[in-house]
Amino acid sequence: MIPASFDYEVAESVDHALELLRTKEDPKLIAGGHSLLPLMKLRLARPGTLVDIGRLGDLRGVRDAGDHLAIGGLTRHHDLNTDALARQHCPLIAYAAGLVGDPQVRHRGTIGGSLAHGDPASDLPTICLVLDAVIVARGPGGERTIDASGFFNGFFDTALAEDEIITEVRVPKTGSAGWSYLKFRQRALDWATVGVAAVVGSSHGSIQGAKVAFTNMGQTPLRAAAVEAALDGAPRDAVAQAAQKADEGTDPPSDTWATGDFRRHLARVLTGRAVEEALSR
């Protein structure tokens, strides 16, 4: 319940934060702190210096940027859940943000923190993956963009460099496409045992551009490539069969919540349900 000792610096600007990351010993960014502090309290994480970017108000909020929404890296789950623009143009991410943790967690936790943590059991990484979001990062060499598809490298491992900060997340507006996120868990405040996100368009009775992604089905959030391929251009009654391919290419963990085999089963069932729900929206 008491973290090991560390130094603490408040960043006054993104540039200042980058400088602190460069100059301080064993630095670690903290925003809401709801991924990091629990680990520090159990002394499973022992950073040398915490660089607090929680006060960078510029990085907070949702902006309409034409074909996409620009979500500041420090936008909290609660903000995203209640944001009018997000609810209108990308209801999936607004909805999913409301499923992260509990209200207190959502009052502190941020989208940037959630992505940078790279937890495959976490909701927003999956949502960003299924939406083909673009992650904007700033580092000593300036700004770069990283596609969500190339962001999650491995278990708690992302493309974000140690000296970079997520400043923005760009999510395409979903327009008329239907959406769903089914988060299977025993208790409301748990991580997903399995989560299935779907964004599905349809025209003239056939499915167009179906996108499906999983939470907690491998080392990273995963896109369900086989399902997407099976659905693309298929009639609506092909969903059940396509869903059977859901666990192809996944590598789900076995833990106290479920075995890998049961997760595979859940992925198949929930994929069918998620796609159907998306089609009905």
Partner: peptide, 11 residues
């Protein structure tokens, strides 16, 4: 509402 065990006093 926040959980005061998951905030540093300095924050």
């Amino acid at each position: 509402s926040v959980k005061s065990c998951t905030l540093l006093a300095v924050q």
